[in-house]
C-alpha cells in the first residue's frame, strides 16, 4: 500500500507546482455558476414555482450542485490512459510489480486534493454571499449520507473514466467518444438542470444509469425531496454500480492487455 501512498503524494506535489493552472480552472468554473444563477433568477421573476421547485430550492440546486460536480470530478483521466496506451508508456508500467489501474486511481486521488480545496473555498464564499437565497440544511444524518454518496460518486466517475480510457486499446483516437460520453453522463446526472423538469419516463430511464446517483439524488436528499431511507437506497445502488464498473474494468483490461501484448498497439 505504501507505493500507492507515494503515488498520491507525488501527484499532489506535481499539482502543487501547477497551482496557477488550478486556480485558472476554478475561475472558468465560476463563470459557469454565474450563468446558471442569472438564467434561473430571470426565469423565476415571472413565476414562483417550476415543476415543484421554488426559487430558493433551484438556487440551492445550482450552488450546491456546482460543488458536487467539481468535488467528484477527476479532470480528464480518459486521455491520460489513452496516451499511456498509444505512446507505449504503459509498457514501462506493466513490467513493474504494480497494478496499472490502481496506479491511475492513486494518481487521481493525489490530483483531486488541490482542486477540492480550491472549490471548497469558492463554495464557502458563494454560500455566504447567497445565504439569504438558498436553503441551508445542517441535519447531520443527511450531510453524512451525502458525504458518503459523494465519495462513492467520485470513484464511480473515476472508474467510468478509466473504462472509457481503456477503449484506447482498440481505438486510436478516443477524444470524440469521451467528449460525447461526458456530456451524456453530465446530462443524465442532472447537472445541467434537475431531472424532474423532464417527463417522468426520462427520470425512470436515468435511474438505470449510475450518473443520477452521483448528482441528482444527493441533491434531492439535501433538499429533503426524498427521505433518508430513499437516500440510503441510492447509496446502495451506487455501491452496486461501483462494483459493476470494477468488474467491467477488469474484463476490459484483461482483453485490452491481450491485444496490447499481441500488437504492442
Amino acid at each position: 500500500m505504501k507505493k500507492y501512498w507515494k503515488i498520491i503524494t507525488n501527484e499532489f506535489q506535481r499539482h502543487l507546482a501547477y497551482r496557477a493552472n488550478i486556480v485558472s480552472y476554478s475561475f472558468g468554473h465560476l463563470f459557469e455558476i454565474i450563468s446558471q444563477i442569472v438564467i434561473w433568477t430571470v426565469i423565476f421573476q415571472g413565476t414562483s414555482m417550476i415543476k415543484g421547485y421554488t426559487y430558493p430550492e433551484m438556487m440551492t440546486y445550482v450552488i450546491i450542485g456546482w460543488f458536487i460536480l467539481f468535488a467528484t470530478s477527476n479532470y480528464g483521466f480518459e486521455e491520460r490512459i489513452a496516451k499511456d496506451i498509444h505512446q507505449g508508456t504503459l509498457s514501462n508500467m506493466i513490467v513493474k510489480p504494480m497494478s496499472y489501474v490502481r496506479y491511475i486511481i492513486a494518481v487521481s486521488m493525489g490530483r483531486v486534493v488541490i482542486a477540492l480545496i480550491t472549490v471548497a473555498v469558492i463554495e464557502t464564499v458563494l454560500i455566504f454571499l447567497l445565504r439569504n437565497k438558498i436553503i441551508i440544511n445542517l441535519d447531520p444524518a443527511t450531510l453524512l449520507l451525502m458525504l458518503f454518496m459523494l465519495l462513492v460518486a467520485f470513484f464511480i466517475k473515476l472508474l467510468f473514466s478509466i473504462l472509457i480510457g481503456l477503449i484506447a486499446f482498440w481505438i486510436i483516437e478516443i477524444s470524440g467518444t469521451y467528449f460525447s460520453l461526458n456530456i451524456f453522463s453530465k446530462f443524465m446526472s442532472g447537472a445541467y438542470f434537475p431531472m424532474n423538469l423532464l417527463p417522468a419516463v426520462f427520470v425512470n430511464i436515468s435511474l438505470f444509469f449510475p450518473f443520477i446517483y452521483t448528482f441528482f439524488i444527493p441533491l434531492q436528499l439535501y433538499l429533503k425531496k426524498i427521505t433518508l431511507i430513499e437516500g440510503l437506497r441510492g447509496l446502495g445502488v451506487e455501491l452496486l454500480w461501483l462494483f459493476l464498473l470494477y468488474l467491467l474494468i477488469k474484463l476490459v483490461w484483461h482483453f485490452g492487455l491481450k491485444k496490447y501484448e499481441a500488437a504492442g498497439v
Binding site: 505504501k2 507505493k3 501512498w5 507515494k6 503515488i7 507525488n10 506535489q13 506535481r14 507546482a17 501547477y18 505512446q87 507505449g88 508508456t89 509498457s91 514501462n92 513490467v95 513493474k96 510489480p97 504494480m98
Partner: peptide, 27 residues
C-alpha cells in the same frame, strides 16, 4: 527494463521522488 526513448521518471518532479516511488514499488 530501460528504454532510451521512453522515460519512467516523473517529469515534473525531482528524480529523487521517482526513486522513492520505485523503492516502494519494488519493496
Amino acid at each position: 527494463l530501460v528504454m532510451g526513448q521512453k522515460n519512467q521518471l516523473w517529469w515534473d518532479l525531482p528524480a529523487m521522488e521517482s526513486f522513492i516511488l520505485n523503492k516502494e514499488i519494488y519493496e
